[in-house]
Amino acid sequence: MKLHTLFSLCCLGLFGTVFPVAATSFFDSASVDLAATARYYVHEKDRNKTVNNQFSHGVKGEFKFNKSSRGVKFNTHLFANWDSADEPRRYYDFREANVYVSQDNLKFGLGVDTFFWGVSESINIANVLNQADIMESIDGKVKLGQTFVSLSNRVKNGYISVYYLPVFREQAYPERPVYGLPVSEYALFEKDKKNGGIAARGLFYIDEFEFALSFFKGTRRSPLLLQSVANLSVRSPYYLQTENFIFDGVYLLDDFTVKLELKTGKELEHGFTASNLGLEYPSYAFSEYIEEVIFIAEYVFDDRGEQGESHGQNDIFLGTKFDFGHSNQGSVRFLYSYDFDFKSEYAELSYEYRLSDYFRFKSKFTKVLSAPMEDKRLFALSDEEFFKLSIHYAF
């Protein structure tokens, strides 16, 4: 093991051991998750022969603390990562650093937070406030912290909230996987606007039906990657201004669950519609070995085509997830997608196992099974299949 890797591990271990012990005397709760990580790409170089980071190792840590007193709650969630080969993956981020003040039915919030909107398993088209942390997860599920001011009002069957987002964060790109061509550090913005945006959301619960109505206006988090005129060997991120009206909801039936995310709005002076309609069906056919297996089917439509925020434009997603072992020690999640326009195929398999109360193992394999050149998003990720492994110590 190289000296700088050993030093990084020791520093994270020392901080993760000493600081929580000291913090618990002040905070109501404190938790630490330290991990040794490894990433292996099946192909030595990317399709364009521009990057040669086939194997890397590293360390990462997450530190969470909170404190409540007389209607005031402080939250902190710090994430830090160090990678041996991929320099952009040497970074840290405050996922949370905020304070919430509650008085009767009102709640005022200020600081940095990670918000989650949506109900789908594959692509959350409703989750628009935070920038995706694709250095940590290319599926966009992991988010960077977002600076905010909010005011929420509790109503009879839910909450109504408004948000002001003063700062916009650009998307950071790792060296691998390569998105067709290296991505320029210099981004372009529609009408030179770079604003976090404003938003509102009403979340309601009615019997077996949970749904939300939301609005967002500001700089779109996911950019278009345009070939640079000045340098044809790189792509330039181009951030659009967007206006979204969003619905997301879950309806629980006796035998299965119906999920829907629907978004309509305006970009580039044109209206658009995107949706994700899904079903979840629990099966107990394997109850002798696995308590419950959940089968997932979702269909994603986006009439923006290549200008959409993800590769889901006319795609079906099929998958399953289940826990197994004593006290659900392990979990497996599999997802497969098929594009009806381009016949592209994509798959990912995740596995997690809890070794003890303190240690757990996580792994994930991601692969583009097939993609023609016309499918620019997935074709750019062809030959970029990789394994990701980590061993976690949490307390």
Rank of each mutant, 00 (worst) to 15 (best):
K67L: 12
V162E: 01
S102H: 05
E288V: 02
S350G: 09
L279A: 09
S236L: 04
S382T: 15
F334N: 02
P166H: 11
N52E: 15
K259D: 00
H392Y: 07
T147M: 14
L14G: 01
G118F: 09
L381C: 12
I316D: 04
D341Q: 14
Q307W: 12
L106R: 09
T273R: 05
N130H: 11
R169E: 10
G308D: 04
I296D: 00
S310T: 12
N105H: 13
D133A: 10
Q329G: 10
G158Q: 01
P20R: 14
K362C: 04
S29Y: 09
I134Y: 12
E309Q: 12
A38M: 09
L268I: 12
L224N: 11
L262M: 02
G58I: 10
Y393V: 13
T24I: 14
Y92S: 03
N127T: 10
G158P: 00
C11R: 08
L106N: 12
F79C: 03
D28Y: 03
L252W: 11
K141N: 12
G61C: 04
L151S: 15
I206T: 08
D315L: 11
K367V: 10
V128D: 00
A230S: 08
F256Q: 00
L151P: 13
S56G: 15
E62F: 08
F211V: 00
Y239P: 08
T37C: 06
F247K: 05
R220C: 04
E345V: 06
E374M: 06
V167C: 01
V332I: 11
V293R: 02
V162R: 01
E62A: 10
N276V: 13
T114I: 12
L335D: 04
V21K: 15
F215T: 03
A394Y: 12
N81Q: 07
K194H: 10
P88E: 02
D248K: 02
E348Y: 15
F395R: 12
L318R: 08
K376S: 05
H77M: 06
A347T: 09
E96P: 05
V18P: 01
Y163T: 11
L378P: 02
S236K: 15
V51I: 11
C11I: 08
E190N: 05
A172M: 11
